[in-house]
């Protein structure tokens, strides 16, 4: 008896932890989002009131709008730059592994570490701007990190710098998986290298593009550390994202019901993108078999 169910028994501890700590907790947070919880969880049901209030809050509007802007720039730049780096690396270059390692090393670092460097580098008083002034370029101005309108883009810069190597690695794997016979045929036809990429190679990277985008969207929604260390949401609320909103409302303003509702919205946003991706990936795997 024991022997028969041994596999189930062995897998139980890990499964139970995940069932409770991931799915149980999702349920708990969702439940809290329907209550009037403030500083402590309460189970006083208030229906959809937290969601109604959430959508009326200007801070939430700002956070969502910021997330949209941030995601569009972050994903677009990471894709273009990541593909470019992958193509450069893929030209049978010398010291390939050295270049690859250099482009990818920021992924091994904490956002708090790299954010410290970027915060200082972008600070007009002491970073890039003052260096340019010393070189004699007195009119050089780069104070985005202090400007409401532009601060969000400094987060984009730092986030791209940190994670574009990852996009590169995925694209490189995609490039290396492409059928080389077609490339040879194109070369024999005398096609120019740019044409080869545009017509033959990039269209074959569809699968890679989807994977890269899904991961980047997930990264964008989760972005939190970088904002805390670089701008702490400021100036004003110029760099609030839903992740910042959730933390602020839950732990600083003691509006746990609204904080929970915002967390549920974040999960829903990721689910909308990730679930179709899983479905698609599992289906295409099934076909291969």
């Amino acid at each position: 008896m024991l022997k028969r169910y041994l596999p189930q028994i062995v897998i139980t501890p890990g499964t139970l932890l995940v069932a409770a700590g991931v799915y149980g907790f999702i349920g708990f947070t969702a439940a809290i989002s329907f209550t009037d919880s403030k500083i402590l969880p309460s189970f006083n049901y208030v229906g959809l009131r937290n969601y109604e209030n959430l959508f009326k809050l200007k801070a939430w509007d700002i956070a969502v709008a910021n997330l949209l802007t941030f995601s569009v720039f972050y994903i677009a730049i990471c894709c273009v730059l990541g593909l470019l780096l992958a193509i450069l690396i893929d030209q049978k270059i010398r010291a390939e592994s050295v270049f690859r390692s250099i482009y990818l090393y920021p992924m091994a670092l904490s956002f708090i570490v790299t954010g410290t460097a970027w915060k200082w580098f972008l600070d007009p008083g002491i970073g890039l701007e003052s260096v340019m002034h010393q070189f004699g370029w007195a009119s050089f101005e780069f104070n985005w990190i202090k400007e409401r309108e532009f601060a969000l883009y400094t987060i984009v810069i730092a986030a791209v710098w940190q994670t574009v190597g990852f996009a590169m690695a995925l694209f490189l794997a995609g490039l290396r998986g492409i059928d080389s016979e077609m490339l040879k045929a194109a070369r024999v036809d005398g096609a120019k290298i740019l044409q080869v990429y545009r017509r033959i190679i990039i269209p074959q990277l569809g699968y890679t593009f989807v994977s890269v985008m899904v991961i980047l969207v997930y990264n964008a929604i989760r972005t939190y550390d970088l904002i805390v260390v670089m701008t702490n949401g400021g100036p004003g609320r110029a760099t609030w994202l839903p992740s910042v909103f959730m933390y602020q409302y839950t732990f600083t303003r003691n509006q746990m019901g609204i904080g929970a509702a915002s967390a549920v919205m974040m999960l829903a946003l990721i689910a909308v993108i990730v679930i179709p991706y899983f479905w698609w990936e599992l289906k295409s795997q099934g076909k291969q078999k």
Binding site: G21, Y23, F28, T29, Y218, Y247, M266, V274
Partner: peptide
């Protein structure tokens, strides 16, 4: 279940975990 656990935003777990 394991696959899904990889993709959750951790904000969804902060409140119950603190509790």
């Amino acid at each position: 279940m394991m696959l899904g656990a990889v993709f959750i935003p951790y904000q969804i777990a902060l409140i119950p975990m603190a509790r």
